[in-house]
Design a protein around this nucleic acid. Sequence first.
RNA 1: GUGCCUAUGGUGCAAUGGUAGCACGUCUCACUGUGGCUGAGAAGGUUAUGGGUUCGAGACCCAUUAGGCACC
Length: 371
Amino acid sequence: MISFELRHTDAAGKARAGILRTPHGDCLTPMFMPVGTQATVKGVPPRDLTDLGAMMILSNTYHLYLRPGDALVARRGGLHAFMNWSGPILTDSGGFQVFSLSEMRKIDNDGVTFRSHIDGSTHRFTPEKSIRIQENLGADIMMCFDECPPPSDRDYNLIALKRTHAWAQLCREAHVTDQALFGIVQGGIFRELREDSARFITSLDFPGYAIGGLAVGESKADMNNVIEWMHAVLPQDKPRYVMGVGDPRDLVRGVARGIDMFDCVLPTRLARHGAAFTHDGRINMRNKGFEDDERPLDAECDCYTCQNFTRSYIRHLLHVEEMLGLYLMSIHNLAFLLNLMRQMRAAIIGGTFEAFAVQFLSRYEKTVAQI
RNA sequence: GUGCCUAUGGUGCAAUGGUAGCACGUCUCACUGUGGCUGAGAAGGUUAUGGGUUCGAGACCCAUUAGGCACC
């Protein structure tokens, strides 16, 4: 099981610093969790994740169920042993992927029937099935099976919310191991729906709560509002997790609104697509302007990439599609976000969070930024 | 040396004699509970050179140049 201890709360605002204890180690929050969908953070060995200071990583029910199959993972001793990552792991429920990846899906009140995006074969997920799979995977934290509807369709959100709530209850009942199970709040961009959802989900008494359905097309203002509304409704003493958010600005604004956990594919995906995070904003490393640039990706970064390679060289690697380029970019982007989380935690503890946030955002956005 | 074939954006190819287009590459942008994916936009050609025929030539004719093939 897990436990969460709130260590510091920023006097001026809502930002929190805490410690999340899991069977595979303690996590200092707020934290960012790199995503390792297919039992690997793409291109990055566990040794590097440890060096970068990743507290926990996320892996995925939908993908691992399809390949290699959760039974195989269980036979190999669970995800930790299988992928040789000894730190904490969180598994997503597969809900989101069923909606975003599968070819066809039919939703009913009991679950989802869908076709694999790999071979078109037909499968069915129910709340209980998702829990069984996640138990086989053996993560420290599992997620409830939920539906992630389009954020601004109120009527549909109402229907989907009823299902998500019923499913949360079924997940809770199906869950028998000592892994932690987190609930997920949905409700799109609508305050009443979000607050109703938060009240219902918290009534089921989970050890942690996620805010789902964000960063799926709604505006930044809507996203920040939803997170802000949750502050008063979610219990102070449980970790709060915004799913699928990883833009540096969103992390800062999320932490400012009391979020403890984030996960996102963004740093590693952008890395593979050629974009690097820097304190002065995102840069596209494929750009011609970096052809002869002798500087590191970010002058203030302590990662292996920035300590050893020039932008010029990295641009070359990306242009000729060499694997090393993807690797160097990936560990830099992860380092950038993980360092950012560390700095925010230190600022919260030191009582300087707001100043840190304004300064970071202003430089990143190249304007006088607001939290 | 003789004969034949070819010559069109960086590369590979299109274009009934009616004013040059496609793919890749290049350049820019997007990507938020992961397809190294994908999507959007842009730049780039006085059609090897010089003549000629024609109202009009990338296309037809002549010469030159450069490649390729065959033969002596």
